[in-house]
Design a protein around this nucleic acid. Structure first.
Lengths: 137, 137
DNA sequence: CATGTTTACTTGCTTTTTGCAAGGAAAATA
DNA sequence: TATTTTCCTTGCAAAAAGCAAGTAAACATG
């Protein structure tokens, strides 16, 4: 996802930014799992490597999906949060959850999100956006 | 996207299948661009290599997203078509189109799909599904 | 029916990306 | 000052993707 082709196809355009697995996983962690710090993302059970995480966080920031600000309480670390542009990716994530809840193996341990999304996807999105309503951009 | 991790996270579960760019581009071509044949996909301006296309078509078929049947009219070639499971990915694609139409540069040559999706996304999805209503699975 | 074309796929090679392990730097802590 | 925490970098190996050429079966043509 280094070079953006800026295709005139809107599907490909979106994939230029979130067409790799890790970028969407990070956005999921930020928006759904309320992760904020570098080590939070490292703690995801998917196991992203530190160099890849650094690269993806930088891309997501320069592409305007997330903000990166130094934590005032603990200046060693940075707080990562979604921008409006990033929050607007939520419908894509929700659509994936809807699809998965239909096709995931019955025996699989169900995620909380599946029930919530199936129950009321609009409310699900609104509730998450409300958590980040203090975002300026 | 070779090994499926079968994570209990529904986002990651979906990304196991469509988390690489090419798989979604192929599904876009099949469902939105009404492409059917190997050479149709090669003709996409994104430029997928033949070995990658062969691999992705095989994966999509074995994962149950598409059907592959020999063309009765011209037995040299195969007809690729979406299954119900594949058509259920449409909301993900539509969510991407919605996102892109909001953030794509104003000067960019607009796709037909952007206007149609923004006008009536539910109708957009129904119309596409109707085209493939003869699909048995 | 011999020859050439179309369509799908394969193979070998190079380049790019990812994964992994170790280390480094700034801020906090003791 | 020494140690820990947090984020990031670097070097190297493994995996994936990209590219060009070639193969084989179905078909078309003379």
């Amino acid at each position: 996802m280094t070079k953006k082709t800026h295709s005139n196809c809107p599907v490909y355009y979106a994939l230029d930014f979130i067409g790799d697995k890790w970028s969407l996983i990070i956005l999921r962690d930020i928006m759904l799992e309320e992760k904020k710090f570098f080590l939070d993302f490292i703690g995801s059970h998917e196991g992203i490597a530190t160099n890849i995480l650094t690269n993806r966080l930088a891309n997501l920031e320069s592409d305007g999906f997330i903000n990166k600000i130094r934590d005032t309480a603990d200046k060693k670390r940075f707080v990562y949060s979604p921008t409006k542009k990033g929050l607007d990716i939520l419908p894509v994530i929700i659509a994936m959850i809807t699809w998965s809840s239909k096709y995931i193996a019955k025996g699989s341990p169900a995620s909380n999100f599946m029930a919530m999304v199936n129950d009321d996807p609009v409310k699900f999105e609104k509730d998450i956006c409300a958590k980040f309503s203090n975002q300026t951009e």
